[in-house]
């Protein structure tokens, strides 16, 4: 059983004693028995029974490192990483622009790779490292990309900016910042409605030419 790994809290431990839950785990013996949505809740949802029952227990433990700090959370499996960051953890630097992977405002790094946090289920980040815009600066010392965005005015309203910066850092780390054209293509997953694109390209070129440290 992997339950220990997830550091399940007492409430969920108790839940394991639930007979219907045990039988569920038994019948899915080929599945790794990770923390599961309680069968009572699931049953209610499946049969469209009283939704109130399903509300009792429906969270899973989520352990992830965010900006260098380990967090133990309890989340619904349907909660996206974006909503967990913004609503549970008050890390509102990561923005919701479309909620459908169509704008890039929610871009964060998971294990060093840029992803759309709006299409990432939080539970699937279990055991991984997440970096958000709040984790980029070292104390008061801004990351060179943040400095470059400031210097080149790589934004106006600032709403897409955290996503742009997270994407820009990844763009260089991936080796996709070798020309203005390449930067434009590899920054096209981040929409800026104010139209700061040329300034964003200048900022990235500046950092790239200055030999940014990842």
């Amino acid at each position: 059983m992997e339950n220990e790994k997830f550091g399940m809290d007492a409430r969920q431990q108790t839940d394991l004693k639930d007979p219907s839950r045990r039988s569920f785990i038994k019948q899915s013996s080929l599945l790794t028995a990770v923390a599961l949505t309680p069968a009572t809740a699931l049953k209610a949802a499946e049969d469209h029974l009283d939704e109130q029952i399903a509300g009792v227990l429906e969270k899973l433990p989520l352990r992830m490192e965010v900006n260098g700090e380990m967090h133990n959370l309890s989340v619904e499996p349907r909660a996206t990483l974006l909503d967990i960051l913004r609503e549970e953890m008050d890390l509102t630097g990561t923005k919701k622009g479309c909620d459908h992977g169509q704008c890039g405002a929610c871009t964060v790094h998971v294990d060093g790779q840029r992803v759309n946090s709006c299409l990432t289920l939080g539970i699937m980040v279990n055991g991984k490292k997440v970096t958000t815009i709040e984790g980029l600066a070292k104390g008061d010392v801004l990351h060179p990309m943040q400095e470059a965005f400031l210097k080149h005015d790589g934004f106006q309203c600032g709403y897409c900016t955290p996503g742009q910066i997270m994407s820009a850092v990844a763009c260089i780390n991936e080796g996709h910042a070798n020309s203005e054209g390449e930067i434009r293509e590899y920054m096209s997953g981040n929409i800026c409605r104010c139209g700061a694109y040329p300034n964003i390209v200048n900022a990235i070129m500046d950092v790239k030419n200055g030999g940014m440290e990842a």
């Binding site: 919701k96 815009i133 965005f149 400031l150 080149h152 600032g158 900022a203």
Partner: peptide
């Protein structure tokens, strides 16, 4: 003028660090 000319935004630091709070970001 190039993008580097002129004074940078007074609220730029808040915007590049994610500290700028927009309407939905109060608790």
């Amino acid at each position: 003028p190039s993008s580097a000319d002129g004074m940078s935004r007074i609220d730029g630091r808040a915007k590049v660090t994610g500290k700028a709070k927009y309407a939905a970001e109060y608790r």
